[in-house]
Design a protein around this nucleic acid. Structure first.
Lengths: 339, 339
DNA sequence: TACGGATGTGTGAACGTGCACACAGTAGGA
DNA sequence: TCCTACTGTGTGCACGTTCACACATCCGTA
């Protein structure tokens, strides 16, 4: 089968001609307005006959509206795969946008090259707004969105985020503090933390909450710093911690995946959990119930974060005023067996 | 900050006026052509001055080219979260498209409503082609793409896929057969399978390969049928199998996640692996090395699948002829500890 | 009889871009 | 001198849509 032209598709003109009407009437059938029942029937028949589909590019050009919202997944390789939240957040956002008849298009940013292309894409009129997840400090995408005045919502917010850009997130400081306090309440004395992603608000805030809970007992030496929220980082971080303080009896892992890695290391080292060491995670992801023992952790409402962010963007699109620029969702503690 | 209009953005006209040139010359600066060095300098200065970004919608309308390719992730909720392949496939595709200066936009299909909207989006001129992953039998998306003659590539192919639509995949039948034969070679006699996703080519083919390897020894009763490739399905499937045949000594799980679930159930049931029961998986995902014992499995070249599919679409876009419509990537057996 | 409103339909102009074409000037070769 | 080729620039049109406007008809009422 040869494919010389990309197949001439019918336009409003063709439909109008086939139905014996004018373009205006076809447009009215599509967008609402006064149309007689016969005219509507004829046009609808012609449309399904010729297989008409409106051309979004033309519509977007004329209307300055594409009915699409970008979901910018600004994640390095390993994170994207090992972070279960990102998937849930996407699905939550997709569902909310879908309900409002908007298309979610997700853009993956891996390299500097990607950043530039995504920036071009965002400003090219293909999307009406953007949801940005886990942007980093000094992320160029932030500037682009700010310059463009593109309706946007950030999920989590880097410390240098422009005050006017709305965000939704969770109270990382408070949640980290609460779960650390739980660890204290079970009688643990030498509590360490495997802190990750300290170039992001979430990582920084979880560490801050941990520090706050421990107060004067806080010991810099008991913080292992790992780059990512993944399993491998957990294994490594726990080895570090055991080496520095063999008498450690409590661990706050910055994510469930990290906690899972930590459990594995503790098992190899012959420590029992929660007998010798209490371990808590963060996320309440599938990791939490898959571990042995199951993890005590902080529930992160990933799906709600996604749909909330979508709502924020949609509200801006409708021209509504946003009262509080930021919004924090609550994060219940989930008590299971690991601490 | 009030936001009455979506902020008037500069157009070629504005740039032309600012630089004292005509629109045509601006266009030539952007797209190549004869332009004097002074003119180019003046125009480039004006562009960076006014912060000009070409309007993709207008360009797409005129050129019938958007420089974007859709990645249709046709996955139900649980699958999307638990299938590690989809992420790797996406990253592979993204990298390849990025290199060719194309934007990947990924569309999530969850519901029938989504299907319809995605179909509209695909035919709306926002994308030049599509990569479709794990479409199901009778998927309406297939018809849409076929009707539109949209350059596309399927990853895996449903049995009812139009002969002309290119696909890339792996030899599920051969790989399943090979790993089952490995199980046989270790002396297992009562081998069961936890089969999943039997509404998809991958699920069907893996079962077929299993059956082929066993030949006359194949026993219908030793196949547990579960809906998804996830951990929970593995737990359930293994319970089924143990109940039906307590003397079972080998299990082929249709995915690593399923194998992980099966391991958990076996552990609970007091069976040792690989002592009492040999277990093999499929995918060589992060699950495989995270299990105890680590899984013997089939390596699935997820990233290559993604980049291959992208290449196929790009080649169609360039008007090249595709010799073999289908393409199968090789899948080495990875021998670890579980069988 | 005339008028205002509701209902229904057609037409022209724009959205921002790229391309074909026209035009102008210079240079080289027959 | 004329023709052609090359470089550089401006202008009109089209892509497919929507929207504002003009027009046409019919009804009820002043």
């Amino acid at each position: 089968m040869s494919r010389p032209q990309p197949q001439k598709r019918p336009t409003v003109h063709d439909i109008a001609a086939a139905a014996g009407m004018s373009r205006g009437t076809v447009s009215r059938v599509l967008n609402g307005g006064y149309v007689s029942t016969e005219a509507r029937a004829a046009i609808e028949a012609a449309m399904s006959d010729l297989g008409y589909v409106p051309n979004n590019a033309a519509r977007a050009l004329k209307m300055r509206r594409s009915q699409a919202v970008a979901f910018v997944a600004h994640e390095p390789h390993s994170l994207f795969l090992d972070d279960p939240n990102i998937g849930s957040i996407m699905l939550g956002a997709n569902a909310a946008l879908s309900l409002a008849d908007h298309q979610m298009v997700s853009l993956v940013v891996e390299s500097a090259r990607d950043t530039e292309r995504v920036a071009r894409y965002l400003s090219g009129g293909f999307v009406d707004g953007a949801i940005v997840v886990s942007a980093r400090t000094k992320d160029p995408i932030i500037r682009v969105i700010s310059d463009l005045a593109l309706p946007a919502a950030f999920i989590g917010h880097p410390p240098d985020l422009d005050q006017n850009i709305p965000f939704v997130g969770i109270d990382n400081v408070g949640s980290a503090r609460a779960i650390t306090e739980h660890l204290l309440s079970t009688g643990r004395r030498r509590i360490g933390m495997i802190a990750a992603a300290l170039d992001r608000d979430s990582g920084i805030d979880r560490l801050a909450g941990f520090r706050a809970a421990l107060g004067s007992v806080f010991d810099e030496d008991l913080v292992a710093d790992v780059p990512h929220y993944d399993y491998g980082s957990g294994v490594k971080g726990m080895r570090d911690l055991l080496e520095r303080e063999p008498a450690i009896d409590g661990v706050f892992a910055a994510s469930d995946a990290i906690a899972a890695g930590a459990l594995e290391t503790l098992r190899e080292a012959g420590r029992s959990v929660p007998g010798d060491v209490g371990v808590v995670g963060f996320d309440d992801s599938t990791w939490a119930v898959r571990c042995q023992p199951q993890l005590t952790t902080v529930h992160q409402p990933a799906k709600e974060l996604g749909s909330c962010a979508a709502q924020v963007v949609l509200r801006q699109l409708r021209g509504e005023h946003l009262d509080p620029v930021g919004q924090l969702l609550s994060t219940p503690l989930i008590l299971r067996d690991s601490a």
